[in-house]
Write a protein that binds this DNA or RNA. Structure first.
Lengths: 108, 108
DNA sequence: TCGTTGCATTGACACACTTCGATATTGCGG
DNA sequence: CCGCAATATCGAAGTGTGTCAATGCAACGA
């Protein structure tokens, strides 16, 4: 029986960090939160999320914490309310994680 | 007590499809598979993945099926072996899913 | 036809994730 | 100081995901 192919080079990287970042984004509600922050280009109050999303307040807070831990959003407390905004470079970081895996090899 | 903010517009989209696509990508082993296919710019035999990844053969087959169901890779059987290649537009589709959420609002 | 090899599928298990109710924390107004 | 309102955290329930051993299926060679 013939060989199946030339040995084939397997990508060496672990992609652990990229997977973590993408997992933080791979949820419809979190995507909607991010889209809101991105289109707002400004801070958004948590109360707006709890009012608009079909989720209870603790669940919204949980998703916001995941995004915060991933470094994709930043929060600031002003009085009783907490405002979230997109972290600088959030889009670039996620795009880079995607490109690290799916971008074709660059010829030297 | 003062109002927290101007009402704030929440993104209406559901982002269900984007989340599904990103979930298919948000795994270190699947990212490595995709990176291998992207850098190979050619088809890769399944046997190369089972040999290089720290996973058993059924697990590799499972990840390949997920990527196939997501439309990110295509497979072709030739004799005993099965070869996988990156589906055309895979990078664009994932990038678009990311941009749909994180790209800032485009001014009209 | 028969055995072997490569890959896919099935069933089961352990773990992580999403969601919620209950409770704690923080800050404001009275 | 006390009560209230806005968020955060905790604990539990239900669901999904990654992994493997066992098995099935397809193609090749003898």
């Amino acid at each position: 029986m013939q060989r199946c192919c030339p040995p084939a080079e397997i990508a060496p990287h672990a992609f652990g960090g990229a997977a973590e970042l993408l997992k933080a984004v791979a949820d419809p509600h979190r995507l909607r939160i991010l889209a809101t922050l991105a289109s707002a280009r400004d801070e958004v109050c948590v109360c707006d999320f709890t009012a608009a999303l079909p989720l209870n307040q603790p669940t919204v807070s949980h998703h916001l914490k995941l995004l915060r831990d991933a470094g994709l959003v930043a929060s600031e407390r002003r009085g009783t309310w907490v405002y979230y905004r997109l972290a600088p470079g959030a889009h670039e970081r996620v795009s880079a994680a995607v490109a690290a895996a799916l971008a074709p090899a660059v010829p030297a």
